[in-house]
């Protein structure tokens, strides 16, 4: 055994020194390399997971917003359609009303015009009757070659006016 140990060069002091060296190496590497590097990798992994989670939430939120937007747009479309329909109905009603009013107004104007026309015609007829009676009296004067007195003239004209109803009919 001693020969083997000697042949292999095993020496307890060297062995202990190498073990101490190795222990120091483990400590230093663990302190300055393994722990900080694993920690930073963990932190990065956590950050990436968080970012992925946030991105997923943002996607979900965007999807929800898109759905909401579609619902709102659909609703707005429906409301716009309803409003247009209502506006069309209102416009139709208003048009009908205006048309009716216009018709009524026109009828009223027509009626008023007719009345005025009647009044005017009556006035003209009356005037013509009066002028015709006067003309007839004058003509009668010339035919009879005599001059009527003021009273006769008025009496003839009155009589003629009464006997000329056809002009005013």
């Amino acid at each position: 055994m001693g020969d083997l140990v000697h042949a292999l060069g095993i020496q307890w002091s060297a062995l202990m020194a190498q073990m101490v060296n190795f222990a120091i190496l483990i400590f230093v590497l663990a302190r300055f390399v393994y722990k900080p590097i694993l920690k930073v990798i963990d932190e990065r992994r956590a950050m990436v997971e968080k970012s992925v989670e946030t991105a997923r939430e943002i996607d979900q939120f965007k999807e929800r917003v898109d759905q909401d937007r579609l619902v709102i747009l659909r609703k707005a479309d429906e409301e716009a359609g309803q409003m247009l329909e209502k506006a069309a109905q209102n416009a139709e009603a208003l048009r009908t009303e205006i048309e009716k009013a216009a018709h009524a107004h026109a009828a009223q104007i027509m009626k008023k015009g007719m009345e005025q026309l009647d009044v005017e015609r009556a006035r003209v007829a009356k005037e013509m009757q009066s002028k015709l009676a006067h003309a007839i009296v004058l003509s009668a004067e010339k035919i009879l070659r005599r001059e009527f007195s003021k009273e006769d003239q008025e009496s003839f004209e009155k009589e003629l006016k009464e006997n000329l109803p056809a002009l005013t009919a």
Binding site: L25, V28, L29, F32, V33, P36, K39, V40, E43, M47
Partner: peptide, 20 residues
């Protein structure tokens, strides 16, 4: 060991940044 200690010093000098 010296080579590994130098490596440790170099790694430490990176300040273990999140964006390496």
């Amino acid at each position: 060991m010296v080579a590994l200690f130098i490596l440790c010093a170099c790694v430490r000098s990176t300040r273990y940044k999140l964006i390496p």
